[in-house]
Nucleic acid binder design. Structure first.
Length: 483
RNA sequence: GUCCCGUUCGUCUAGUUGGCCUAGGACACUGGCCUUUCACGCCGGCGACAGGGGUUCGAAUCCCCUACGGGACGCCA
């Protein structure tokens, strides 16, 4: 009997909804639907320090906005739950114990400090980085003594050495790894939570995942997963590693060099269908070469053989062209509805009106005074550029200050009046700046002009994506100035 | 540094069972047409098989080496 196709996506709720997540979700979704299989959404929130429910919700909302949906997940349940890894701790601990019993794993009592010392030494010596296995062969007595002493420990995979581990990837030739090259990966952290590697293998097994479609960055840790499947005696899923989305300079797509938040694209006026279409042509193409296609077209024509492995550069310009195609083919009525929903919603207008209310003399002042809330990127005229550099400061200083602010805002879940104020205050405090060093430059960067509504409220209404994008643009513009 | 993956126009790609490839399309750029203007649309231009060795009658397509790019090397995922 043919095994049911079950695939999964495992976003980690530690940041804004990422285009890379949407990209991988698209291909998983297409693959599953095409084979009458199921797509599982599993929240990989084993990093307790960085995971937030707020982000989980944002990720789900974004995917749904794009029109991507799943069959099983924390929101809709399913037969193999819970679908949040933070709620599956006991399961992982049980399997980690099993590995211990089988001799495929061991307790390691090394401290974090000890480990970073090892790494530093290795780096200095130019030798391969990785755990040196010093805790591998502790005697029963030593282990018991450590346990009795209440020393914290982690559980590590005991990679069989010597040996070779082969990874089969549906898109590539078999890949051989020398086991000497594979680290004794930590499986269970000192806080009792599993690392990605353990959680993934255990969950994929328990959730009956048949195909693992994920990004290429995982190839080098796949042998660890293979070793785990073998240690448990489980069948392995089919691995399929998609090429990585890239920045212009070919590095892995990142927020410093590219807008990567789905929220950004939403707020910048892109349509879900256009985004999905564009993502679909990253590493894949229609047999007839057609570049404009729908998810239904993809469903009909998708085949893994047509995936090309070179890492595609995410080109916003081409996305924009595609988006224009979609926009223009809508009827005016439909477009009107879209504009009212995404751009000029009552909700949005209700936020904006109070901010300009008291400075209005004629109704149409509203348009000129609030245009910057609605348009995408701003351009800065000469006066604006000049005013972004505070007196007695250089453009370089101005850039550094705005940069500090961007970084602060990046750590925020949502930008609100309060968090905007807090961020600005923190940047001033941490960098020894006065209000004049940062407030006016920020105002101009964010609104394009010296005269605008109260800054914190304005930033809150503009939202995180527009604010950080504009700050980045302002920083880039300042670079052109002689320092 | 070590291991791994990848490599066709600036970018996304077609090409996959070697000949139909003097390498096709799209974005961008650019010339023109249409148009009161702009945009759309249409027509044209620019522009690539990383390099070197093989194998073969014949290689973008197969093999090897080199180069370059990227990824991984976390008690992050």
């Amino acid at each position: 009997m043919e095994q049911e196709v079950r695939v999964r996506i495992g976003p980690s709720p530690t940041g804004d909804p990422h285009v890379g997540t949407a990209y991988i979700t698209l291909f998983n979704s297409i693959f599953a639907k095409q084979r009458k299989g199921k797509l599982v959404l599993r929240i990989e929130d084993t990093d307790r320090n960085r995971s937030k429910l707020e982000w989980e919700n944002m990720i789900c909302d974004s995917l749904k906005w794009l029109g991507l949906d799943w069959d099983e997940g924390p929101d809709c349940g399913g037969p193999y739950g819970p679908y949040r890894q933070s709620e599956r701790g006991d399961i992982y601990r049980k399997y980690a114990e099993e590995l211990l019993d089988k001799g495929a794993a061991y307790r390691c009592f090394c401290t974090s400090e000890e480990l970073s010392e090892i790494r530093t030494a290795q780096r200095a010596a130019g030798s391969p980085l990785g755990y040196d296995g010093r805790g591998r062969d502790l005697s029963e007595a030593e282990i018991q003594a450590n346990l009795d002493a209440g020393k914290p420990y982690v559980i590590r995979l005991k990679v069989p050495r010597p040996g070779t581990t082969t990874v089969n990837d549906a898109l590539r030739d078999p890949i051989d790894f020398d086991n000497g090259q594979i680290d004794d990966q930590i499986l269970l952290k000192a806080d009792g939570m599993p690392t990605y590697h353990l959680a993934n293998v255990v969950d994929d097994y328990l959730m009956k995942i048949s195909h693992v479609i994920r990004a290429e960055e995982w190839i080098s840790s796949t042998p660890k997963h293979v070793l785990l499947y073998d240690a448990f005696g489980w069948d392995k899923p089919v691995f399929m590693h998609m090429p990585l989305l890239r920045n212009k300079d070919k590095s892995k797509i990142s927020k410093r060099k590219n807008p990567v938040s789905i929220n950004y694209y939403r707020e910048a006026g892109y349509l879900p269908d256009a985004i999905l279409n564009y993502l679909g042509m990253m590493g894949w193409s229609m047999p007839d070469g057609e570049e404009k296609f729908t998810v239904e077209d993809m469903l009909r024509e998708f085949s893994p053989e047509r995936i090309s492995l070179g890492g595609p550069v995410f080109d916003v310009q081409k996305l924009t062209w595609l988006n224009g195609l979609y926009l223009r083919e809508e009827s005016s009525d439909a477009l009107l509805a879209t504009i009212k929903r995404e751009l000029l919603s009552d909700e949005k207008l209700a936020q904006v009106v109070p901010l300009v209310h008291e400075r209005m003399e004629k109704l149409d002042d509203f348009i000129s005074q609030t245009a910057f809330f609605f348009i995408g990127d701003l351009s800065y005229d000469e006066a604006a550029m000049k005013a972004m550099v505070p007196k007695k400061r250089t453009p370089k200083d101005a850039r550094a200050n705005l940069e500090a602010l961007v970084e602060k805002i990046d750590t925020l879940g949502e930008l609100t009046t309060e968090s905007a104020k807090a961020s600005l205050d923190a940047v001033m405090e941490e960098n020894g700046l006065g209000p004049r060093d940062i407030l006016l430059p920020t105002r101009i960067a964010v609104t394009g002009t010296k005269a605008s509504p109260p800054l914190f409220e304005t930033m809150g209404v503009l939202g995180k994506e527009k604010v950080r994008r504009r700050l980045r643009n302002a920083i880039a513009a300042l670079k052109a100035l002689p320092s």
